[in-house]
Amino acid sequence: MDAQKVDMYLMTNGKFFEGHQIPMIRERLLALDESRFAQLHAINLKDPTTILIVSIVGGGFAIDRFMLGDTGLAVAKLLTCGGLGIWTIVDWFIIMGRTREINAQKFFQLVG
């Protein structure tokens, strides 16, 4: 794929991934066919900042974990009232990284 297109994709979507993953993502994008580029825009990437806000507002009800697709953890968090509040507070610090992790998994599943 064209390097300019890859750089544009990374500028617009870089916040969805961890910083150390960007060089590997760039390599995969450069080796990707032009025809698969449209599929990249169809990936439902979650915004880490939005998930953090949801976690702060509704983390005790496990809304953040349900949004990420961590259904098992979400049910456990919901049943324990956010681990008596402790789990909710811990999630405020780790939920953005978990969101970027899930986004990277989706990306690498598509790209291969």
Results as ranks from 00 to 15, higher is better:
residue 6 V to T: 07
residue 6 V to W: 00
residue 6 V to I: 01
residue 7 D to H: 05
residue 7 D to Y: 04
residue 7 D to I: 01
residue 7 D to K: 12
residue 7 D to T: 05
residue 8 M to W: 08
residue 9 Y to G: 14
residue 10 L to Q: 12
residue 11 M to I: 03
residue 11 M to G: 10
residue 13 N to S: 14
residue 14 G to V: 04
residue 14 G to M: 05
residue 17 F to L: 07
residue 17 F to Y: 11
residue 17 F to W: 10
residue 18 E to C: 11
residue 18 E to I: 05
residue 18 E to S: 15
residue 21 Q to H: 14
residue 22 I to H: 14
residue 22 I to G: 13
residue 22 I to A: 13
residue 25 I to L: 06
residue 26 R to V: 11
residue 26 R to N: 09
residue 27 E to P: 04
residue 28 R to F: 01
residue 28 R to N: 14
residue 28 R to A: 14
residue 31 A to C: 07
residue 31 A to I: 09
residue 32 L to A: 05
residue 33 D to Y: 12
residue 33 D to W: 10
residue 33 D to H: 12
residue 35 S to H: 12
residue 35 S to V: 09
residue 36 R to E: 13
residue 36 R to S: 09
residue 36 R to F: 07
residue 37 F to Y: 15
residue 38 A to K: 12
residue 39 Q to E: 15
residue 42 A to P: 04
residue 42 A to I: 13
residue 42 A to T: 15
residue 43 I to W: 03
residue 44 N to Q: 12
residue 44 N to C: 12
residue 46 K to W: 07
residue 46 K to L: 14
residue 46 K to F: 10
residue 46 K to R: 13
residue 47 D to L: 06
residue 48 P to G: 05
residue 50 T to G: 13
residue 50 T to R: 09
residue 50 T to S: 12
residue 50 T to K: 05
residue 51 I to W: 02
residue 51 I to T: 06
residue 51 I to F: 03
residue 54 V to S: 14
residue 54 V to H: 08
residue 54 V to W: 07
residue 55 S to V: 02
residue 56 I to C: 15
residue 58 G to W: 04
residue 58 G to R: 02
residue 58 G to I: 01
residue 59 G to N: 02
residue 60 G to P: 02
residue 61 F to A: 15
residue 61 F to H: 02
residue 61 F to P: 04
residue 61 F to E: 03
residue 61 F to D: 00
residue 62 A to F: 00
residue 63 I to E: 01
residue 64 D to E: 12
residue 65 R to K: 07
residue 66 F to N: 00
residue 66 F to T: 00
residue 67 M to E: 04
residue 67 M to S: 06
residue 68 L to Q: 01
residue 68 L to N: 01
residue 69 G to M: 00
residue 69 G to F: 02
residue 71 T to N: 07
residue 72 G to S: 07
residue 74 A to R: 00
residue 76 A to F: 07
residue 76 A to I: 11
residue 77 K to E: 08
residue 77 K to S: 12
